Simulated assay, not measured.
Amino acid sequence: MNLVAAQPNAIVVFDIDGVLRDVSQSYRRAIADTVEHYTQGYRPPPEAIDRLKQEGIWNNDWQASRELIYRHFETQGQSRETIDLDFAALVHFFQSRYFGPDMNPVDRWSGYITQEAMLVDREYFEQLTAAGIGWGFFSGATRGSAAYVLERRLGLEQPILVAMGDAPDKPDPTGLIAVVKQLTPDATTAVLYVGDTVADMHTVVRARQAAPERSWWGIGTLPPHVQAQPPTYQDSYGQALERAGAAAVLSSVPALTPAMIDHLLAQPSRS
């Protein structure tokens, strides 16, 4: 059964990492592993990764890892131009941690991806469909990793997905707009994009500029690693999402109920 609503009266597009699954001990752990390996000892704490992500341009975790490596050596007085860093080798190291040493086929994955806790279930999407709300996914994760979550873990059938390599990286809104166009031919249907980073919210702002005929809403969520921090840190993280364009910041995806969506869309348009 295809759960996606036909002719939806609203659309919700979801990021995946930190939104549908907890990546604090998978992708983010792989970032820390990679930086530690290439700096021979410096392991960035979660707060350092958050600070980088809040710049809004480091959605790609391979590039984020490289940037943290460069910045570490710069604090040691070394220019990044003098650092001999093989990016292809860095990507391979990162992937070997995330997927495990045997990256193909999926049934032989043994890395951090196998330990990710899910933050939502299939029933949530069934509730959206029953309310006439369409949904899809725009993520910076690789297609294999994203499909593993959506199809194997959540049991969704042929979900509409734009993943890494299908469109430019966020905050470019091309991928978000592509998902929406697959869900409805109506150019005025309101869209909510749910994400946990500044780049996600910037993507909504740029989508609004690219397609002003539509109402666009950014919905922020606090990822699990942030919710494990003191309230002051959680507040600061949420405020960063709001400054970047979030109309609301929630503790989890299930809090975005059909009733809440109706309430948000009844407010003055953000277009």
Rank of each mutant, 00 (worst) to 15 (best):
M1K: 11
L3M: 14
N9F: 08
N9P: 09
F14E: 05
I16V: 15
V19I: 04
R28G: 09
R28M: 13
A32M: 11
D33V: 06
V35T: 08
H37T: 13
H37E: 13
Q40I: 11
P46D: 11
E47V: 12
A48D: 10
R51Q: 05
N59W: 14
N60V: 04
N60T: 01
S65D: 06
R66V: 12
E67I: 02
L68A: 05
I69Q: 01
R71K: 06
H72V: 03
H72E: 00
H72L: 01
F73P: 01
F73T: 02
T75S: 07
T82H: 11
I83P: 07
D84G: 11
D84R: 15
L85Y: 07
D86H: 04
L90C: 10
F93S: 03
Y98N: 06
P101Y: 02
D102V: 15
M103A: 08
P105C: 09
P105I: 14
S110H: 02
S110M: 00
G111D: 01
T114S: 12
A117E: 14
Y124H: 08
E126V: 14
E126M: 11
Q127T: 13
A130P: 09
W135F: 15
F137G: 02
G140Y: 08
G140P: 05
G144W: 02
A146N: 06
Y148L: 02
V149H: 01
L150S: 04
L150F: 07
R152W: 15
R153V: 13
E157I: 14
L161W: 14
G165T: 04
A167F: 08
K170V: 07
D172C: 04
D172R: 01
G175L: 06
G175A: 05
A178D: 11
A178S: 15
A178Y: 01
V180F: 04
K181D: 10
K181M: 02
P185G: 03
T188H: 08
A190K: 04
L192S: 03
Y193P: 05
V194A: 00
A199C: 03
H202Q: 14
T203M: 13
V205D: 11
R206V: 07
A207N: 09
R208M: 09
A210D: 00
P212L: 04
P212W: 00
R214H: 01
R214W: 00
S215V: 15
S215C: 11
W216F: 11
G218K: 06
G220S: 10
G220L: 10
T221I: 12
P223R: 00
P223K: 03
P224K: 04
V226W: 01
Y233I: 15
Q234Y: 03
Q234M: 07
S236I: 00
Y237C: 05
G238R: 05
G238P: 15
Q239C: 12
A244E: 13
G245S: 08
A246L: 13
A246P: 15
A248M: 14
L250I: 08
S252E: 12
P254E: 12
A255T: 07
A255N: 07
L256E: 09
M260W: 11
D262V: 13
H263P: 05
H263C: 13
L264H: 15
L264G: 09
R270L: 13
R270D: 10
S271R: 13
